[in-house]
Amino acid sequence: MATITRVLQVSTGSLSLPGGNIPFWGFADALRVIPQLPGPIIEATAGDRILIFLMRNFFRPIGEPISILFPGQENVLVRKIPGGPFILEPVKPQYSSGKIISFTNFLDELQDLIIEYSFIARKAGIYLYESGTNPEKQIQMGLYGIIIIRPPGYNNPGHPNFKTAYGTDTNSFFDVEKILVLSEIDSVMHNDVLPNVYYDMLKFKPDNWVINGRSFPDTVNEDNNSSQPYGSQINCRVGQRVLLRIVNAGLQNHTLNLGGFVGLVVAEDSFPLKTSTLDATYEKTSLTLGSGQRMDIIITPNASGEYYLFDRGYHHLVNNDHFPGGMMTKINVSS
């Protein structure tokens, strides 16, 4: 079993949205100049140890304590230099004068250099990592990313787990895989937030709806090196099994319509629905995901053409109140 090591920083940056550019806070691979939304994808194989170093940013810190939560991972350990703990110990909520200030151990960039989180990636699946400090503010500001844990042998042709999301006999074999991270952005909040200053979240009123940090039509553009590096267009051929890994990183619920396709739900919150004793997979045309939830869906297009995948909450299909825009992307099926 390997050890996957990633060094991350948190940085201020700029997002390009249909209404213009807005500031955001994002994760970045260390020493890369700009942060990104969603954060860098971290990939591992079940059984690997994942080591995440969160390093102080000397150049463009956000100006608040920062931390990372790993929902769905167990026994996360932490150590921190120079503030301690120096020996790995389980993460725990942090208090100040009896009041909770962080869900997990955090890095204070005024005095700490580096904090290390580590855990064994036990179960295959797709997971979020996100801020655990001032999360009502920091996650909306952009501090979330994706961890994919592969079953052993998934990249080994001939292995029964080859190209599966959850291993053999889980009905999760795929030809094409696409991660779709849903969220919404309040541009007013992004412009108004100040570090270490209370922001009244009752004012939260998102005006942009994004997949992988981009609004339509930017969603259908290719991956690139910008702060919104991940495209969302899906290209496949008739008869291929397309695995959609849908993650709701936002604060609101979203209903993704599968573009007229009927999808097979193979896992919810990274728990496969098919086991050796029960096949509980089921089919849907639209799926409602609550905040933080994930669904793995297989669609198998049976005819070539263009199809749109969109938020069935139709008021999210706009940019500046005009259709088309927002939380929408395209599936191109060739013959």
Partner: peptide
């Protein structure tokens, strides 16, 4: 796989 529910959340478009 049918299941019993007191409350069914009728989701948009579903």
């Amino acid at each position: 796989l049918s299941f019993k529910r007191f409350t069914v959340l009728v989701g948009a478009g579903q």
